[in-house]
Structures are given as C-alpha cells and as structure tokens.
Simulated scan of single mutants.
Amino acid sequence: MHDDRERQAAVKQAGWCCSWAIVFGSFAACCAVGLIVCGVVITKPVVETKSLEFQETTCTTNQSYLTGRNIGCGCGKNCQSNYPCLRMTVTYVVNNATIDGVLFDTEQRLNNNGGSAENEQCVTAPCQRDAGQNSRDVLNFNDTYAPGTSYTCLYHPDRPGNVVLTRLFTWDAMFHSMLWTSIFTFIFAVLFFYCLYKCREAKNKVASIPVTIPPRAPGAQPGYFLPQPPAYSEGGQSMGMQPPPQNIYSNDTKTGYSNYNYN
C-alpha cells in the first residue's frame, strides 16, 4: 500500500511538472518572438540609421513635388495598396553654413528609401487599404510642410544630406523593449527547463517503484466437488457407462404378482 501511494504521488507530480513545462515553454517562445520583433522593428532602424546620433536644427522646405511613382505596400493580411511618392527637399543652417538635404518623416523611412533613386525618395509612406485615402494623406502632409515652412528637424553630422522630421524611437524605447523581452525570455526559459527536469525526475521515480500485483482468488479445494468416475474397461478398451440391470422378478404394482411366466 505504501508503494502504491508513493507511485500515485509521483504520477501526479509528473503530470503537474509536464503541464507547467508546456506553459512556461509557450511563454518563453512568445517572449523570444517579441524580442525578435523588437530587434527588427526598433533596434535595426535605430542602429542602421544611427538615429540616436541625429542632432536638432531648424529646417525650411525648399521644394516638394510628386515624383510620378506609385509605391506598392502591404496594408495587412491579404491586403495590397499603394501611395504616391512625394519628394521634399529642405535647407538648414549648421555653424553658419547652409546645407541642402532630403526630408524623411522618420528614421525608418530614411532607412528604407534614403539610398533609393530620387523618384523613390518618399518623404512619407501612408499605407491604408483605400489607395485614395493614401493620396489624401500625402497631400495633407505636403500642405503641412509646404515650401517656405520652417520646423524642427534632425540631421546627422556624417550624412548631412538626409534629414529626419521626427525620431520614431528613442534610446529609452530601444533599451526597454530589448531589456524586458530579454529578461522575460530568460526567466521563462529557466522555468521551462526546471519543470522539464522535475518532470523527467518524477517519471524516473514512477518507473523505479515496483507495481504491486494483487493476490489471486483462492482456487477450489479438494473435496468440494466429486471427481468424475473412471470409465470401465474391458480387454484394454474403454467402455461407456452401462444401464443398470433390470429386475425380471419385479412385482406388478397393480396385481402384486410376479411378471415371470412359468410356462
């Protein structure tokens, strides 16, 4: 009985540990995916464009025009759209020197189109399902930053020809996005492997506990049943049971006389 209780407890422990291993493994996988997404969406543009090194200045729009290209874009699952490409050039002053540059709304847009041909250097890239709405958004952007308008912008000392309107991701955003996803990935991975270890340990314990086989029911004891009588044999051959001999001297129950015929 003690072995049976211990075995049941080990089986229960193995089930719980395996269940928690699945849960923590799923969390670790989700956090790992989040870490990859943050790296691609946030860290990659920041590192490649060196946007954290951009410095503030005041830009004035010189020229803005539609290049004549409609750029295709993905607007979601099974959704394709397009937007007209608007190119915008600006001037800004650094150390009493006037510098010309091409404006991009964010460092991600700079990363995607900064090195493209002039007809694909789009200052903004709205991508909704309705292509007409994308065109209206581009025209509204052009009206907001029309030629002659001054506003705060960002430039990089090593690449003064490319200017960013707004920094999409700050140092804090990049740091925290990578920090917390890394921490939770590590924590859930440790819990996953710990539960996996405990699950394997419990399974080995179950395998090491002998299984108690219940005793069989007692069999029939001698004398409980009459044995079958042996068959008669004659001349070495087995003979079947014969009917008992008839009494030829039996009396008639009605007359009381013998049935024997004396004639």
Score class of each variant (00 low, 15 high):
224 Y>H: 04
33 V>W: 15
137 D>A: 06
136 R>F: 08
8 Q>G: 08
172 D>V: 01
234 E>M: 07
164 V>H: 03
83 Y>V: 01
178 M>A: 14
207 A>D: 14
2 H>C: 10
171 W>N: 03
120 E>F: 00
22 I>P: 12
137 D>I: 00
29 A>P: 00
22 I>H: 03
126 P>E: 03
216 R>M: 08
163 V>N: 02
206 V>L: 04
151 Y>T: 11
237 Q>I: 06
83 Y>G: 01
88 M>F: 01
3 D>P: 07
115 G>W: 05
97 A>C: 01
151 Y>G: 08
249 Y>M: 11
249 Y>P: 06
30 C>V: 11
250 S>A: 15
180 W>T: 03
219 G>C: 04
69 R>I: 05
249 Y>G: 10
156 H>F: 11
259 N>C: 08
191 L>T: 00
260 Y>E: 06
96 N>G: 09
254 K>G: 05
162 N>L: 04
201 E>K: 15
36 I>T: 10
244 P>S: 14
185 T>M: 12
168 L>K: 02
232 Y>H: 12
202 A>E: 00
33 V>G: 10
9 A>D: 07
68 G>N: 07
214 P>F: 13
126 P>A: 05
38 C>V: 09
152 T>V: 12
225 F>H: 13
45 P>L: 01
122 C>V: 05
41 V>F: 04
128 Q>E: 12
239 M>R: 15
4 D>P: 05
44 K>N: 11
95 N>K: 15
144 T>W: 10
176 H>W: 10
47 V>H: 03
263 N>E: 13
208 S>M: 08
182 S>D: 09
151 Y>L: 10
35 L>K: 04
247 N>M: 07
245 P>A: 09
59 C>E: 04
93 V>P: 03
167 R>P: 09
128 Q>S: 13
106 T>D: 05
241 M>A: 15
234 E>C: 07
204 N>R: 14
233 S>L: 06
146 A>L: 09
195 C>F: 06
90 V>Q: 01
176 H>A: 11
68 G>P: 01
189 A>Q: 03
119 N>S: 08
53 E>G: 05
189 A>S: 13
258 S>V: 07
209 I>V: 06
250 S>K: 15
238 S>Q: 14
195 C>S: 07
221 Q>M: 04
104 F>S: 00
47 V>Y: 14
209 I>C: 03
214 P>V: 12
234 E>N: 04
194 Y>N: 05
2 H>D: 10
225 F>K: 05
55 Q>H: 09
236 G>T: 00
258 S>L: 13
131 A>N: 08
38 C>D: 02
175 F>Q: 02
